[in-house]
Amino acid sequence: MKSQRALTSWAASLRTQATQLGQIAMLVCVGAVRARRPKGELLRQLYQVGNRSLLFVLVTLGFTGMVLVFQSCLQLSRVTGDLSQVGGEFIKYLVHEFGPSLTAMMLATRVGAGIAAEIGSMVVTEQVDALRMCGVEPVEYLLVPRFLATLAMTLLLAVFGVLSAVMMGAFTAHQTFHVPYSVFLDLSKVKLPDVLTGCIKALSYGAAIPIVSGFCGLRTHGGSEGVGWATTRAVVSSSFAVIVLDFLISALALLSWQSM
């Protein structure tokens, strides 16, 4: 009885949250299209998102590139000893999967937490209410520039991330396994579907991260502790959104490839 009631109330709160998330997503998309925002704000957000995350993405993706190449070369040198294919496969894999997904995981912590912390502290200091009292829709005013900036920057940073990973991977292969750069940097395996899948992934992550973290930020209540909670929730929810989207898009890509 008791557990049943708990389950019902849990389901009800899940439904209201899903509705709210949907409403925010709608507002953001409509606002993004209507383009009625101050010009400087978008530039400022682009700078914020891009500049603050560039080094972070380069370093993490670079190290991941090293690890991946090292592992694959190690495994392959045990099995076949032919390392000529490693570079091509690695780059292909990077483009359609690891580059966008890992970049987005990193941005979910960097940008997602930032958005939630900023909006959350505006909520607890009543600045969001003050925006409403000036006749401004907070979702549109606060979230639309962040949405557009994250959308653009995820794609751009994914490209940088892939480049960094490829460079570090080529370096590792050259240094530890003596694979020449010309053999490693083999772009012939990267086909249009790979690039397309990668771009679709990056754009979906770039859309999901600001919406999910903005939602978490706007739901903040209760002082400085509330802001901390909102930030936490934003990191977890937007990372999870990335993982789920990765799975869904990969599955779709696999299935549509099979049918082709």
Partner: peptide
């Protein structure tokens, strides 16, 4: 929502904690 916004923009509100935009 649009009507609510236009009503709200005709109210001057001084918040207890000021709520100045940082």
């Amino acid at each position: 929502p649009d009507e609510l916004r236009s009503i709200q923009s005709r109210i001057g509100y001084l918040f207890q904690n000021n709520a100045l935009f940082d």
